[in-house]
């Protein structure tokens, strides 16, 4: 079990900026009073951020991922979360095995 000082410094630096982002919202939160377009934008934060994270996998990785993504979206509109994950992983496995 070794602990390299440079590695530790990198981990602590990454951990610190991550934590500051997590608690940064606490300072913002009390002061935000939004209406109209600003409120609509604020409410769109969750789906917009989550979509941006996965868009490259779904759209620009390969045909297997894109097709499996379409199957997963269809499943997500009908099934609970766990079933959606099972369908998605199953679809990508089948499509990759098929050589896409």
């Amino acid at each position: 079990m070794s602990l390299d000082p440079t590695t530790l410094a990198a981990i602590l630096g990454m951990a610190l900026v991550t934590w500051l982002c997590r608690i940064g919202g606490l300072a913002l939160a009390g002061r935000l009073r939004l209406s109209g377009r600003a409120a609509a934008a604020f409410e769109a934060i969750p789906p917009a951020v989550l979509t941006a994270v996965i868009a490259p996998t779904l759209l620009v990785t390969g045909p297997a991922e894109t097709l499996a993504g379409a199957v997963t979206i269809a499943a997500a509109l009908r099934l609970p979360l766990l079933a959606t994950v099972v369908v998605g992983v199953g679809a990508v496995l089948v499509l990759r095995t098929a050589g896409l």
């Binding site: 979509t51 996998t57 979206i73 994950v85």
Partner: peptide, 24 residues
């Protein structure tokens, strides 16, 4: 296919937001 589990769960979470919200 384990790497795709992360993507699938995000798709499911996005779908739950879209179903609840409006056209925006």
């Amino acid at each position: 296919g384990a790497d795709f589990a992360f993507t699938a769960i995000f798709v499911g979470l996005v779908a739950s937001f879209v179903r609840r919200g409006g056209g925006g």
